[in-house]
């Protein structure tokens, strides 16, 4: 089965990003496909490489980045939600005249159309978060 995954809450405050990660990892391990993971609302905050949790805690962003690398996952951060919350890739930071970017490996910034497309192309679109 082909899954689309939506993550609507940021890391650590809510468990949604963790549960989404466990779910995505499990379906991939079981041999299913994941068409795309889409990060929306505060979920875009999962995609900053600047998070430094205490060493004995899980590293949510790194978990996702490693999963993306292992399975060649398409992980998209919504551009409108990202701009509100200061998540920038190199191009966008330059375009906005900002002095740096913070997007994590494996994440890319794109539009909401990618969410709709995930809904159209996936057999099941599964949402995590409020």
């Amino acid at each position: 089965m082909k899954f689309g995954i939506v993550v609507n809450e940021g890391p650590y405050t809510h468990q949604a990003a963790d549960t989404a990660y466990q779910f995505t990892k499990s379906v991939l391990e079981k041999g299913h496909d994941v068409y795309r993971v889409f990060f929306y609302h505060d979920g875009v905050n999962v995609g900053t490489r600047m998070t430094v949790p205490p060493q004995d805690e899980r590293h949510i962003q790194r978990n996702w980045s490693e999963l993306a690398e292992k399975y060649d996952l398409d992980m998209v951060v919504c551009i409108a939600a990202a701009q509100r919350r200061g998540i920038m890739d190199e191009n966008e930071a330059k375009r906005q005249g900002l002095d740096g970017d913070n997007i994590a490996p494996g994440f890319r910034i794109s539009g909401l159309g990618q969410l709709i497309e995930a809904g159209i192309q996936s057999d099941r679109l599964v949402t995590f978060g409020d």
Partner: peptide, 30 residues
């Protein structure tokens, strides 16, 4: 496609960002 709106318009951003999805999604003629 069904967009389910369960939160008050202000106090959190969910309603506004939901509406943004609806408007962008309209271009996909679903």
């Amino acid at each position: 496609f069904l967009y389910v709106n369960r939160k008050a318009p202000y106090g959190t951003i969910y309603a506004l960002e939901s509406l943004e999805v609806v408007l962008i999604g309209a271009a996909f003629e679903q």
